[in-house]
Nucleic acid binder design. Structure first.
Length: 858
RNA sequence: GCCGAAGUGGUGAAAUGGUAGACACGUCAGACUUAAAAUCUGAUAUCCGCAAGGAUGUGAGGGUUCGAGUCCCUCCUUCGGCACCA
């Protein structure tokens, strides 16, 4: 037996260094595969730029492209997490697999480096975010290299680099030119702890996504991106992409398209029109009051019409509701509140005058912000009517008369189907079918109603009163009017002379240099916009910048964008399903409309990795003390073990608990491979003849086929299990031979090492170099193909069932595979089968060739 | 409340409608060792049985089928998302 031991540390450090020196996989994005050896890179061909037809006619790519994208990572000070290892390794396996299969693979890396944690740290310690961020990136980079991720480091980027945010600002200016970046005034979500505005998407259950503080409403002037311009396309585009079903649904849900009827109610005694929006217009005859959201009331300036006697109570109520937090207003509020305006509105269907209330259970953002109160058939309206002693009119009756009685006696509301009543000419019609349809037709014909589709999606608020972000490229003239920063002044540099104090004002207000810069460039009395952009802006286009990360003239060349987009696989955590993806899709569509791209959707295929939980099955967190540090695992067992273990844990998309003891099993597996392969190599090198057992060769080829099927399907766990099975068979085969004899020949050994190499790149490289004695890297070698002929066994095991229950099995020669009658007769003659057929009639005989016989008896 | 995903041994899990539990961990027993660790070998769904074997078994209950973890219906539970959405 071999005396070599599996010294993972030496092996891994050796090859990490060697790959670094060889610059494997660097700047693949600019290589032109069919011009091997020539200096004519895609980059230098940029001069005759825009004409795509010429370019594509010349290039005739011989290699299929494969753009693998890993979710943009924030370089936190905590360093690499085992969760990062999982998704990075999964993509790395694909990258290595596709390269070996002759594809041109682009697998870039970068840093979503702007953001709050670094700034908060600066507030606490005074260390500049640029320093914190750089240190964190250095740590991550080292750790990633240590686990052997084959990133293209030549195109690494970071969003805080001026050469990156120059183009973030440039995109802002393009949006501004088209009126899609605008200054808006309105209520915004304000986090009192972070001292900043938050997008709707960053408010979770009324709390700040970052720090958990309760979010309050505040009125401010802010910059918005008009994402709603693309709302319908953001829906229809989902049909083009291969994403998890649940992800698409969540996006749809967020956009919240909903078709309803807008019905006009006229104010009694004035020309003011109040439009309600509803999906349940069939109950309109049951309207006994109308409710308006406080904001809507203010925006419509309705106070003028309120009688003097009511003004004070109305104003008090409005003031109070504006002070409420989101939390109080939405979920926390148990009891309905509201105030009677004293005004009356006319229900257009029957001319009845009903009171107008203001109540904050009606939300400004939903529909028109005005609701018809139908207490008999809506829980919330019922609750409100009960509290304010408003009448309840039932307009839908149900077969179950106890329910009708309860509705009639104001004990409950009823939202189910039934027959219309108290609804004029519509009485007796089915409320959810004929009634609904005929009533809509009638109302529209009468001219007081119209179809109206509403959306939940709001424009994207991008202003942040923070330091560590890309400055919004806007300057204000002495009159306060906003002007875009001129493109030649980009990058619009983030000043460095600031103090980190959470005052509620943007830290950039305190920069002397910033103000002087603006006055110098634009004139006396001009001032800069002090807010920075939401970091989601940075991450909405990074996958484009990767394609030309060092380009000084464009955000990326047309040629590169055309060649590489859309991304072929995007691996991203389920937490980014709504925000980031929506924004990135919006940017893509905008840049397409500006003529820079020709794709509609940036991410063709997307998958989500699951979360790795602590050994206790709970989410890892410092406070629970259940965090697994990848560095410690690497130190003890090596990066290959860490990689293979994480891939073996279970399906990539599932949440899985860490099991410290299971890691050892993987270490044993790699150790046994090392042992067996080095023993074989030694034996081969000593010139001992080989005659691999047919069963072993068959297993090898079956394994190769399995891995070939499993890797593109992202089923890494079963691919690894297949290698383990092979190893078991292989070891058994070795036992029947003289221990010094090799059990596989050089080619078979090589194939095995090659299919192992995406999973355990260090060990595979070491073994490959030993068996091929100093040839090129295994990772540059050609993926081995399996032999179909080798997959077929000369004997088949057929299982025999009686009435679907397993009773026996027989072995038949391959030649009898299709001899249905012969096999069935053989099955019937088995001793284990006969008793089950005794005194029974066979009513059906099923034969699945080479697999199964089922005899149905009665 | 609405939408989605998922329920399989002690654990992580596997299974184009065709032998449920591959593979691995753990556990038990054995080998090696003064001993331990490491390593190796074997057993390991549950129940009955010395065994051969039999019965049961993929959250529950129905259904389709020669045959269901897988397909259909009705529930239950857990997790994720949305939520005073009119």
């Amino acid at each position: 037996m071999s005396t070599q031991i599996y010294d993972h540390k030496t092996i891994e450090e050796k090859w990490m260094k060697s790959w670094e020196e060889q610059q494997l996989f660097q700047d693949e994005v600019h290589k032109n595969p069919q011009q091997s050896g020539s200096s004519g890179s895609a980059r230098s061909a940029r001069d005759d730029s825009a004409d795509l037809k010429t370019v594509s006619a010349e290039s005739k790519p011989t290699k299929e492209k494969m753009y693998l994208l890993f979710a943009f990572a924030y370089p936190s000070g905590a360093g690499l997490h085992v969760g990062h290892v999982e998704s990075k390794t999964a993509l790395d396996i694909l990258a290595r697999y596709h390269r070996m299969n002759g594809k041109q693979v682009f697998f870039p890396v970068g840093w979503d480096a702007f953001g709050l944690p670094a700034e908060n740290y600066a507030v606490k310690t005074g260390v500049h975010p640029a320093i914190t961020t750089k240190n964190a990136i250095d740590t991550f980079r080292g750790q990633i290299k240590r686990i052997g991720i084959s990133y293209d480091w030549a195109n690494e980027l970071a969003t805080n680099h001026p050469e990156y945010y120059k183009w973030t600002q440039w995109i802002f200016l393009q949006l501004h030119k088209k009126g899609l970046a605008y200054r808006g005034d309105g209520m915004v979500n304000w986090c009192p702890s972070c001292q900043t505005v938050l997008a709707n998407e960053q408010v979770v259950n009324g709390h700040c996504e970052r720090c958990g503080s309760e979010v309050i409403q505040k009125q401010m002037e802010q910059w918005f991106f008009k994402i709603t311009e693309y709302k319908d396309e953001l829906i229809s585009g989902l049909d083009e992409v291969d994403w998890p079903h649940a992800t698409k649904l969540q996006q749809l849900n967020w956009i919240g398209k909903s078709k309803g009827l807008a019905i006009d109610f006229m104010m009694q005694g004035s020309e003011t029109k109040l439009t309600v929006w509803t999906k349940f217009w069939e109950t309109v005859f049951g309207t006994t009051f109308v409710v308006i959201a406080p904001e809507q009331f203010r925006d419509m300036n309705l106070m003028d019409q309120v009688a003097e006697s009511h003004r004070h109570t109305v104003q008090t109520y409005i003031d109070q509701s504006f002070k409420k937090t989101e939390e109080e207003r939405k979920i926390g509020e148990k009891e309905k509140t509201g105030v009677d305006t004293g005004l009356k509105v006319i229900n257009p269907v029957n001319g009845s005058a009903v009171p107008l209330y203001i109540a904050d259970y009606v939300l400004m953002n939903v529909g028109t912000g005005v609701v018809m109160g139908v207490p008999a058939h809506d829980d919330r309206d019922f609750e409100f009517a009960t509290k304010f002693k408003l009448p309840i009119i039932q307009v839908v009756s149900y077969e179950d008369k106890t329910i009708d009685r309860k509705v009639a006696e104001a004990e409950m509301s009823f939202e189910g189907p039934g027959k219309l009543m108290n609804s004029g000419n519509f009485d007796g019609l089915d409320a959810w079918h004929d009634g609904k349809q005929k009533m809509a037709e009638w109302m529209i014909k009468q001219g007081f109603a119209n179809w109206q589709t509403t959306y939940k999606l709001r424009d994207w608020l991008i202003s942040r009163q923070r330091y560590w972000g890309a400055p919004i490229p806007i300057v204000y003239d002495p009159s306060g009017a906003a002007h875009p920063v001129k493109e030649e002044h980009l990058p619009w540099l983030l000043p460095t002379d600031v103090e980190f104090k959470p005052t509620g004002e943007s830290p950039l207000t305190y920069s002397k240099e910033f103000k002087e810069r603006v006055e110098k460039l634009y004139g006396k009395g001009w001032r800069p916009e002090y807010d920075t952009m939401d970091t989601f802006v940075d991450s909405s286009w990074y996958f484009m910048r990767y394609l030309d990360a060092r380009d000084k003239n464009e955000f990326a060349t047309r040629e590169q964008l055309e060649k590489w987009l859309p991304t072929d696989l995007y691996m991203i955590g389920p937490e980014h399903i709504v925000l980031h993806l929506l924004y990135a899709r919006f940017f893509t569509k905008f840049l397409r409309d500006e003529g820079y791209l020709s794709i509609n959707e940036p991410f063709k295929k997307m998958r989500h990795q699951g979360m790795i939980m602590g050994p206790d099955g709970k989410k890892m967190s410092k406070s629970k003390g259940n965090v697994i540090n990848p560095d410690e695992v690497i130190e003890k067992y090596g990066a290959d073990t860490l990689r293979v273990y994480e891939m073996f844990m279970g399906p990539i998309e599932a949440d899985k608990p860490w099991s410290t003891s299971s890691v050892v099993g993987i270490y044993r597996f790699l150790m046994r491979i090392h042992q067996l392969v080095t023993t074989n190599i030694e034996a081969l090198q000593s010139g001992v003849a080989t005659s691999p057992a047919p069963e072993l060769m068959r297993k090898l080829h079956l394994t190769m086929k399995k891995i070939n099927d499993d890797i593109p399907a992202l089923k890494f766990n079963t691919a690894i299990a297949a290698m383990m099975e092979l190893l078991n068979v292989w070891e058994q085969a070795g036992k029947h031979q003289n221990t010094v004899a090799p059990t596989l020949d050089v080619d078979s050994l090589t194939s095995f090492i090659q299919v192992l190499s995406p999973f355990a790149p260090f060990l595979a490289e070491e073994l490959y170099q030993q068996v091929k004695s100093g040839q090129q890297s295994v990772h540059l070698s050609q993926w081995p193909s399996f032999d179909e002929k080798m997959l077929v066994a000369d004997q088949l095991v057929v299982v025999i069932q009686v009435n679907g229950k397993l009773r026996a099995e027989v072995t038949i020669p391959l030649s009898d595979k299709d001899e249905k009658q012969k096999v069935i007769e053989l099955a019937k003659s088995q001793d284990k089968v006969k008793p089950w057929l005794q005194d029974k009639t066979i009513v059906k005989e099923i034969y699945i060739p080479g697999k199964l016989v089922n005899l149905a008896v009665s």
